Simulated scan of single mutants.
Amino acid sequence: MPTTDAPVVAAVHGAAAGVGLGLVCAADLVVAAQEAVFTTAYGGIGLTSDAGVSWFLPRLVGLRRAQEMFLTGRRLTAAEALDWGLVTTVVPDDEVDAAAREHAASVAAGPTRAFGAVRRLLRRSGDTDLHTHLADEQDSVVEAGRGSDLLEGARALAERRRPRFTGA
């Protein structure tokens, strides 16, 4: 998931622990049930992290909060996970799948090539300096401008309608 250009939507029912937390961290949009909980779980079984959790988690929630989760075994409620920036939205338990499908459909109807480029830019943003990142952004804008989605987006704006992107 981390290296794919396709945006990833996750739906969380129950507990996201260990590798499950890693999948949540790697997703772009996360819909959680009100009863969902989030924990690293590794310390409880005598292991260190895997699935990229020790890389993703501090970038999402901050170093101190990640340390607290790893070193104390703290379990976050869905509301806390939303407050900490770990999830995108919290919905009633029986609405999780529908909300996740709605997010996925919305992303799929968007300018998918541009979304892929944005995903790459966001992934690299923590590892590059501003000058390099601005150059990468410029390159991605030029590349996105070569596709038909830009023309469709501009037409839709001028015609005051929703764009119908094709991902081309």
Rank of each mutant, 00 (worst) to 15 (best):
W55L: 13
A81L: 05
L63W: 14
V61C: 00
P58R: 00
R64I: 09
W55N: 12
H103G: 12
G126M: 04
A15R: 09
R65N: 12
R59E: 14
E68R: 13
D149N: 06
A105F: 10
E143M: 01
A36F: 02
Q67K: 09
V87H: 02
G145C: 05
G44Q: 13
V61I: 15
P58W: 01
A51H: 01
D50H: 12
G110R: 02
T4M: 07
A17T: 13
R64P: 12
V9D: 02
P92G: 02
A99S: 12
G153A: 10
D149M: 06
V142F: 06
V107W: 09
A26P: 02
T132I: 03
D5W: 06
L157T: 14
R164K: 06
V96R: 03
A100M: 06
L130R: 15
V24W: 05
V37G: 09
L151N: 11
T72A: 06
G126E: 07
E152G: 06
L63A: 11
S49N: 12
A144I: 09
G110V: 00
A99M: 01
G22L: 02
A36D: 05
T77S: 15
S106F: 06
V96T: 07
D83C: 14
A17H: 10
L57T: 01
A16E: 02
R75E: 15
A36R: 02
L23Q: 05
V30E: 10
D139P: 05
V37Q: 10
A114T: 14
G20S: 05
T166D: 09
D129H: 06
A156T: 04
G145D: 02
F165M: 05
I45Y: 14
E35L: 07
T4L: 10
A41I: 11
P111Q: 04
S49A: 13
V107D: 03
V37F: 07
L150N: 05
A17F: 13
A32W: 08
M1D: 08
T89G: 06
A33H: 00
G85H: 06
T112K: 07
A78F: 07
A156D: 07
L150K: 00
D127I: 04
L60G: 05
Y42I: 01
I45F: 15
G85V: 09
S148I: 04
A32P: 02
A105K: 12
V37Y: 10
G147V: 08
L121P: 03
A10R: 01
E68C: 07
L151V: 12
A16R: 04
A156Y: 04
D136Y: 02
G126R: 03
T3C: 10
R123H: 08
V30A: 10
R101N: 13
A79K: 11
R162D: 12
M1P: 06
Y42M: 12
A109C: 02
R162Q: 12
D50A: 14
A33R: 03
T112Y: 03
V9R: 05
